[in-house]
Design a protein around this nucleic acid. Sequence first.
DNA 1: TATGAATGAGATTTCATTCAT
DNA 2: TATGAATGAAATCTCATTCAT
Lengths: 224, 224, 224, 224
Amino acid sequence: MATSVQLSPGRSTAMRKPKAPEANRARILAAAVAEFASRGYDGASMDAIAARTNTTRAMINYYFRGKEPLYLAVLERVYADIREAESGLDVENLEPVEAIRRIVEFTYDYYVDHEDFVRLVVAENQAKGRHMKRSHALRTVNRPIVEMLGRVIARGQARGDFRADADPIDVHMAIAALGMFNVTNQYTFGSLFQRPMGAKGDVDRRRAMVADIILQWLGPQPAG
Amino acid sequence: MATSVQLSPGRSTAMRKPKAPEANRARILAAAVAEFASRGYDGASMDAIAARTNTTRAMINYYFRGKEPLYLAVLERVYADIREAESGLDVENLEPVEAIRRIVEFTYDYYVDHEDFVRLVVAENQAKGRHMKRSHALRTVNRPIVEMLGRVIARGQARGDFRADADPIDVHMAIAALGMFNVTNQYTFGSLFQRPMGAKGDVDRRRAMVADIILQWLGPQPAG
Amino acid sequence: MATSVQLSPGRSTAMRKPKAPEANRARILAAAVAEFASRGYDGASMDAIAARTNTTRAMINYYFRGKEPLYLAVLERVYADIREAESGLDVENLEPVEAIRRIVEFTYDYYVDHEDFVRLVVAENQAKGRHMKRSHALRTVNRPIVEMLGRVIARGQARGDFRADADPIDVHMAIAALGMFNVTNQYTFGSLFQRPMGAKGDVDRRRAMVADIILQWLGPQPAG
Amino acid sequence: MATSVQLSPGRSTAMRKPKAPEANRARILAAAVAEFASRGYDGASMDAIAARTNTTRAMINYYFRGKEPLYLAVLERVYADIREAESGLDVENLEPVEAIRRIVEFTYDYYVDHEDFVRLVVAENQAKGRHMKRSHALRTVNRPIVEMLGRVIARGQARGDFRADADPIDVHMAIAALGMFNVTNQYTFGSLFQRPMGAKGDVDRRRAMVADIILQWLGPQPAG
DNA sequence: TATGAATGAGATTTCATTCAT
DNA sequence: TATGAATGAAATCTCATTCAT
């Protein structure tokens, strides 16, 4: 018994006890965003999240009641973030064409700069929207960018700049598709075609390209 | 093979030991494609794959030497499949504009009809290309569609139908982005904007839309 | 401990959750010593260790984080034990020859009485010291018996009882070799030469024999 | 089906088919000696042995009928080898003291040069002689060295060179113990006391030391 | 004689969650 | 509010052996 035997099985590093519930919650949530984005729902481990926050699995369960609720909170958070960012975008004073270009650029950059968001959206789609369905908050997320697009397109149509049958949701979808692909498919596409993509690709050139594509398509139909 | 060869007696149906390695392998691979596509790498379970066939985990390990090699075989298989399908696409005799439309339609339909392929590609990207890197076969997959696009674009440029600076890989990327998005993001996008997507969306309309987008963009630049 | 302290009510016997981490850890460690000593590293099974206690594999992993760390803890424990036992050996007040005899006897008996220790040492050697290398604790184990031997030998040399070139580590090695062999090789040697060995052999006679061998060797060199 | 799919699950390296049963057996046995010596009974894998021989597990089972019989064959082989080597030792024409020195040196060197033998003996002892018991061949192995020792000791006693109560088996045991320890305990002892041992230690010095120990002990008892 | 195919048992480890305090 | 302890389920992989030819 004189021999010193280690008693505590867990991590024995002295951990600070914050005693600040809100801060704890926020820290856990941030760690969870990173972990779920990086590893996906199944790949993410509660332990890894705990390790990123100097707390324990039990703590996380205490705050979020389990892995899935935590994941939902993560989704809600990143959607709230993009909604907020979109809200800050002011295009009412720009000419329609310039406004579209601005919106495309904003969107393109947001994806490049927020890979976590993109990866989480993709993960949720890979999960067939399983979790999203259970969240009232997520089912009622509104994305200001679509209404914004609607107003810009209407202005452009009024001036004859844009084709008459342009639909804001279609336009948003095209912008999102072209912008996301660079991030979502960077590994396979980049590897197969030897093109650096995502944040490492030629961001400026490709962002401009997307704007061109959208604007060409939106432009008034040549008679015929 | 046309002549009737006597098969060994008990080979007809319910044998305890099938002894049909090729068929076994193929069955396992098919089951693995479905399982990995449905659940992702981590989510997929060797047991589930075994259950989809009439074999056991041990059998799968015997044939494929583990989960990751099996996953690689799956990736290689679906890439081989799309490469083969692309090879069968004949556009050399079409006018450039029609050829592009044909290629877009083919690609769009392939994604809609082969969700497994799309999901596997997405999954591999979510895994940051981790597995792909280890496969020589995958690092050297060539996608005939890009060369095909290159030839069509060159023909179009020679006739003045297409802009001079069009790049086949950019074009392929745009087509892929617009086509995949409908499949990859169907759950979140569809839910957020109340639009059915993927195979359940308005496939015809959207396929045409993608072709329009690409062709407008490819068309000769208006002077100025 | 002598005063009667009130224990918490349910603590007496059959609780579903013992909540006695120290005792659990100790019980697991003891079981692991027995299992690893009996079956070697590879032969030992975590299940068997669990069965020897009243816990589960998962519990063991919780406390020790895996099989190898557990094995290391076992090694560290038995080395700590022998070190402690060696420390209790008091030979400073004995004449050098008697002191050597005492040390030999202690060592010989320790091996006979602690087959687990001997078997674990042998197992680690069979594993080429693979695990030991990874343990800082083990790399810095000091064995008091060698310093003790050094002091006794020096005293004997000063009196002319022992040869001048005697080296404590050589002496310890010879003692250990002769003592361990009886335990380590009891099965093959005993079987081949029909001699009961280990604890079943003629312990007294052989222990004396080892002391004789060592002392004859240590004794002053006959001139010439 | 145009795609090339690997069909054979096993190792596809072109393997030569020796068609030489005896040679096969010998090669497998040699590989098994190395594998069992290196990894112990449990640690050894039939696959690893197969890999060392360019055959398959099935082959080995075909020749040896299982892992344990193979292990027994290995033990029998290495004991046959040492017996044969011992038989070649000629000491009848040496003076008793020189003869003893010769025997010690031979034994010491044999252990240093045949670690596989030593490791197998140790492994069998760690297995508590479990396998040995089942082998008639092993239960009747005779070790010529003991009779040889007996004759030498008798000659030495007749001349008054050796003590009267010296027992050949005791002597052999001491020689074996001192010689084996250098090999069997080289990892723990060497690490704990910073002494290179086994073939890497100071073989010459230690071999001489063992001879000295034995001869001092065997020498005629000083009166008293 | 030789072998690819097939099998079932067992081993370790990870993990999310629950419990009692 | 916070947490160490405990648990049961599942997942992957290895392996010796057997079978049919």
